[in-house]
Amino acid sequence: MKIGVCLKLVPATTADIRVAPEGQALQLSGVETILSAYDEYALEAALKVRDAVPGSTIHAITAGPDEAAKCLVQAFSVGADTGLHIKGVFDGHAASKVIAAALKDIGPDIVFCGRQAIDDDGWLVPGAVAEILDLPHVTAASSLTLGDDKNSFECRRRFEGGEQVIALQLPAVISCDKGLNEPRAATLKGRLDAKKKQPVVKTAGDLGLSEAELMPILKVMRFSPPPQKTPGKVITSPAAEAAAELVRVLRDEAKII
């Protein structure tokens, strides 16, 4: 099987993200970067399928500026067969187009993505890529079982009030939720082998997409820090009194109960 996996390099969860003066940009230079948390599950899902179907190959793809290639090194270190870096600056809509174009050339049987990137939290790319390629998709799979025919998956997905069991025919796109698997760590050998592999670098133009097609139509106007809160009221009296006081302020001051 040909397995595609879409990866994104993002600022670390704990990184201090500052808004530049005037709010026109974010100050991201020098910020520590990681593979987006849910993409770890996508990468592991790809490895598991390859383990189960001998002869399969894993094709990792990322779209972003120079530094983005770092997440392909991580993919190589756990055993991705090829890596493609689509170089450029893309919003989620443009990224979906370039990734779909690249996947079309690869012709995968299955594509894994994280359910959302933890920087933009856009929830767009997996469904948009599937739409462009006319493939079915499953969003935020929490468990996966490859069918005996190797041409289908049984997926589980949580929703408000329960869990769905979904029958999915391949080829398809699956976005991965936390808990889908236990991502493996790279071995020392894996890390050394990764140094011998080079990603293929392409531009949007190489993939047949024009600048006009990739222009953002949802225009970013301004960044701002979240609304700041003033320190609240802290109650330190014994439990029973503190409880009574809290209930009183929630009722009388906040008026929410």
Binding site: G92, H93, S96, R115, D121, G122, W123, L124, V125, P126, G127, A128, A130, E131, I132, H137, T139, A140, R157, R158, F159, E160, I217, L218
Partner: peptide
């Protein structure tokens, strides 16, 4: 912004040639 939207909104936007703004 619930599980239905997570599943279909991006695809609806793409099919209509528009954009998605989440959350």
């Amino acid at each position: 912004a619930g599980s239905l939207a997570r599943d279909v909104a991006g695809r609806v936007a793409t099919r209509l040639g528009g954009a998605l703004a989440s959350d």
